[in-house]
């Protein structure tokens, strides 16, 4: 039983409410699984690009030391594209697995449960394989548009379901009226 002035779990919103790509509040010991993922990605980069790949890997590790995981992942994807690897090659698979592992480790740490990790892995495997398989037959921009639309729609439906369930349990009606606004850190907008 305790009471705290601030939540220790606020990773993105500290006291003054600013979100920064550089805030990493987890302890160093918590980052060992991520290190494994990063090293796998570095190995894949080496296989794909040789010395250039190693340089890209070193840059990736440096970024991982300071940036949040989503930025490390995005930077990794750009580096892979820069090295010019094929995602179906061994090196490409290792890089993708390593980078996706970064995200999975963060999910596991956040939710202390394997279910969101399993869900992410299943979805990514399914959709990724589908994209790779379909890229020969479908124009890439339609693929991208379709996937983005599907993910956004699923997110929005989840949001509506959440709103309905919480309103039902608290005995109030469905949300209505103008969107909420506050002067806090987070944008009070609905998930798309």
């Amino acid at each position: 039983m305790s009471e705290r002035a601030e939540s220790a779990g606020d990773i993105d919103a500290d006291g003054d409410g600013r979100y920064s790509p550089f805030d990493r509040l987890e302890r160093r010991s918590d980052r060992v699984p991520e290190l494994v993922s990063v090293l796998v990605a570095v190995g894949g980069l080496f296989l794909q690009g040789g010395r250039v790949g190693v340089a890209a890997g070193v840059l990736l590790v440096a970024l991982w030391l300071f940036l949040r995981v989503e930025f490390v992942f995005a930077a990794g994807a750009v580096l892979v594209a820069g090295v010019g690897g094929d995602p179906t090659s061994l090196g490409g698979v290792l890089v993708v697995a390593g980078l996706a592992g970064l995200l999975a480790v963060d999910l596991w740490r956040t939710w202390a449960s394997a279910r969101p990790v399993a869900l992410f892995a299943a979805l990514f495997t399914l959709v990724g394989a589908g994209i790779v398989a379909a890229r020969e037959r479908v124009v890439l921009h339609w693929l991208g548009l379709g996937v983005v639309a599907a993910v956004a729609l699923a997110s929005y439906l989840l949001h509506r379901y959440e709103v309905f369930r919480l309103d039902a349990s608290s005995g109030t009606g469905p949300e209505s009226g103008p969107p909420e606004h506050d002067d806090g850190s987070d944008r009070r907008s609905e998930v798309p």
């Binding site: 989503e70 995005a74 994807a77 995602p87 969101p116 979805l123 990724g128 994209i131 997110s155």
Partner: peptide, 18 residues
Amino acid sequence: VTLLLGGVALGLWLLAAQ
């Protein structure tokens, strides 16, 4: 397609968290 996969991975990651 690698960049596309990266973007999709991030989107699915958010979806799993949600």
